[in-house]
Design a protein around this nucleic acid. Sequence first.
DNA 1: GTCTATAACGAGATAGAC
DNA 2: GTCTATCTCGTTATAGAC
Lengths: 207, 207
Amino acid sequence: MATGSGARSKTAERILDIAERLVQTRGFNGFSYADISAQLGITKASLHYHFATKDELGAMLITRYRDAFVDALRAIDGEGESSLHKLNAYVKLYEDVLRRDRMCLCGMLAAENRTLSREMQTLVHGFFDANERWLATVVDRGRANGELRFSGSAVDQARLLVVALEGAMLVARGCGEPARFTVAAARLLDQLTIASPPRAGRRSRAP
Amino acid sequence: MATGSGARSKTAERILDIAERLVQTRGFNGFSYADISAQLGITKASLHYHFATKDELGAMLITRYRDAFVDALRAIDGEGESSLHKLNAYVKLYEDVLRRDRMCLCGMLAAENRTLSREMQTLVHGFFDANERWLATVVDRGRANGELRFSGSAVDQARLLVVALEGAMLVARGCGEPARFTVAAARLLDQLTIASPPRAGRRSRAP
DNA sequence: GTCTATAACGAGATAGAC
DNA sequence: GTCTATCTCGTTATAGAC
């Protein structure tokens, strides 16, 4: 179920689909209306009928992306109460983006932050806040019920998870090695998990 | 002591200084020769005398940045044998970049990866590899001598550190809240440290 | 809603004088 | 090394016909 954001024409939706892919692969400053025009098969002028300015298109992209993400988090909440399951499902959201050869839309826009309109900047900030709030609740409950182990505040732990996953996507793409994401994510969750099984290479402190 | 990379004119060096700041704040696709021209006070045409193409300028930027980073790592190695000190000094390198209101050059370029020349892509990859190699040695020794605690391979742990710090810079800048970096970095090192002191909010597993 | 046509500007890059 | 002048192309955006 889509979250608000109202009705849009099918053409507008296809424009957003194409633009989203372009931003996630090339950045907001790395594509133009001409790229969308070529892929969609309508003229640049027609694009301006649906989204008058590129900034307006950008704002819509972030809003739609955030709404879809929030929907995905709600769906995860509906899958049960296990905090560890929720965390794994959350990581899988990122993995799905990466598997499609994309960067997180808002991670990409965070890099380009200084070149964006005020509105886009605010929306990007809001995306990260929404993620952190959800994760903070998950890890807080997980610690309370003994599933997870970490020190300090739940919000800080949630923020570490967000930044580490965003960075893992960033570097994995920058190196052309998606596996770097998987390894980093697995290790992140491992550190949060209580009674994780011993792994090859593990050593105890000096005897 | 500078690492190789040879002699360059003073003007070329000033061009690189200005371009570096522009890339770190706005991205490689977010600035133009006109920006450098305005800040340096020479014409765009003159810039092309020093760096024939923007791609060439970009490649020089990464090379110089990597060399400076490698030099900084060598300097840290000269400060003693403490792994924990090395890690703190490493984090401080990132903090210094962020304090100057910049993103890591190669983190920024990692986001723009798909729009870069082959050469620039390769150089970015090389930057991350160099960082990981150094960090892997540090954490491996730290674990061997009992200073640090982590499971799995040292290389994987090094990679987690790199991606988490890059992501922390990315999101901190994307939210306009540098403190997000500091908190994430502190927590990262805390998880690696043996016998870290109890902190407010810490809880042990269910009794 | 989509088109043609075009405006208005900025980009990277080059030629050739000094 | 730096300049003026210019080229060519791509960019966002608009006007007005269909």
